[in-house]
Amino acid sequence: MLRPVELEVRHLRALCAIADTGSVRKAARQLGMSQPALTTQLRRIENAIGGELFARERTGSRLTPLGRSVLGRARSIVAEMNALTAEAREAAGQGTASGTRLWIGSTTSRAVPGWLRRLRLRFPDADTTIRTDASPNTLLRMVAEHQLDVAFVHEVAGVPLRFPEGVELRVLIAREPQFVVVPDSHPAARAPVVRLADLAGDQWMVDPSVDGELTGLRRILAAAGLNPKVVYGDYLMAADLVAAGEVVTPCQPTARARPGTAVRPLEGDPLTVRLLLVCRAGAGAPAGIEGVFTDLAAAYREIAWASDAYRRWLARHDGPLPLFQMPERVPVPLLV
């Protein structure tokens, strides 16, 4: 039975965030609030509905049957509210890159600062803001729900993202190799290219909140016949632990080596990602989307050639970068 507490759109957004991220901790980080505050809010929501929406488990939060039922309604309400807000902003002259705002999202990438700089020059009258998130799937849903105009995300090979209905992809890089960061005292640091077998005795660290990265890493290790210990942590902490000689960790090819570390490619490039720019399809795409893609490509090219390890890899693989080609547009019809 419903209690006197009434649900608001912010409560529904919180439910969606917990379901999307799989844990209250990650959802709190995404929503910009503390974990205890979100836990308290979830209890109030469950009290108002009259039942448990998530089963708390050691690995995170799993939807209950009641939770799945409520979430289906919550998503449609949040999407409608986001669309209403976007339409109202557009009616007020605040809706496109050629107007006064451009909302972009991105997973972690060193290309983002250069992208933002170019976008501000291209759209000097736009209020350009950015939302970063470790989860590509979260950013995709935000695009579909009109919370973002575009998102720059990566998809780990063999671990497909969940593309919502009505979004369109532009492929920046079809197959970007992922490198590895090792202590500069590690024997592998003396080689230009590292074999996975050379790291068989090392402890790996990966951020499990980044969609697909844990699964992708375990897949390539298993394919190489290796079963090293894998521990969890964010990549900022991982860099410090690599320098201390405690772990090795996968990284983007554009990563800069910090003191005490070395960035090296893996032999055969077993771990790769696809880099994508995502926006709403058809008439829902923001004005000037081709320019947005062009600026992202230029920013990525700039940082790629400025990265020592990646520049050497590109030279060995007969550059130029794939992004010199025309962007491939891929409509995505259904959520998978």
Rank of each mutant, 00 (worst) to 15 (best):
R25H: 11
G288V: 05
E168N: 12
L214Q: 09
L271P: 03
W115S: 07
G284R: 06
A238G: 01
Q41M: 15
F324C: 03
E267Q: 13
W313S: 08
L31W: 04
L334D: 12
G105S: 04
G268I: 11
G67W: 01
V193Y: 06
A239K: 14
Q41F: 10
G201L: 05
G158V: 11
E90M: 04
E176S: 09
A48Q: 01
N137W: 02
L66I: 05
V330K: 01
D269W: 08
L161K: 07
L323A: 07
P4H: 01
L236S: 13
T215Y: 10
A86T: 05
I77Q: 08
Q178M: 15
C279A: 13
M326K: 13
A223S: 09
T128V: 13
L140T: 02
T108Q: 11
F324N: 03
A306W: 00
R101V: 12
G114W: 09
D211E: 11
A17C: 11
V181E: 11
Q178D: 15
L116D: 12
G225Q: 06
T261K: 02
A126K: 01
L277K: 11
P253L: 03
A283V: 12
R274H: 09
A287I: 06
A55P: 00
D184E: 12
G95I: 00
Y232Q: 14
P187T: 08
W103C: 01
L236D: 15
I49A: 05
G114P: 02
T129A: 13
A37G: 10
N227I: 00
G93D: 07
A189K: 10
D240A: 11
I49N: 05
D211R: 09
Q203I: 15
S34N: 08
F163W: 13
D295E: 10
A97V: 06
T100V: 12
R122T: 15
R3G: 14
A174D: 11
E246A: 14
G72T: 02
A191S: 13
P331W: 01
L217G: 02
G51M: 02
V273Q: 00
V24R: 13
T64P: 04
V112E: 03
G72I: 00
C16A: 14
T132G: 10
Q325M: 05
L161R: 02
S76T: 11
L139R: 02
A55I: 09
Y310I: 08
R56M: 13
P160W: 00
S23A: 03
G201W: 01
E213C: 12
V167E: 04
R190L: 07
D125N: 14
R56N: 13
S76R: 15
L140P: 07
G284H: 06
P250L: 06
G166A: 04
R264G: 06
D20Q: 15
D20M: 12
R175L: 10
G216F: 06
I130W: 01
R329P: 00
R62A: 12
R175N: 07
K26Y: 15
P331N: 07
L221N: 08
V193E: 10
L169V: 04
L139Q: 01
A239T: 14
R62S: 09
G260H: 01
V78K: 02
L266E: 00
Q178L: 15
M142C: 10
A17Q: 08
T132N: 09
A238M: 09
Q35E: 15
R44T: 11
A309Y: 04
Y300F: 14
T261C: 07
S106G: 03
A55L: 13
A304I: 05
A255Q: 07
I130G: 08
G233D: 07
L323M: 13
M205P: 08
L221A: 08
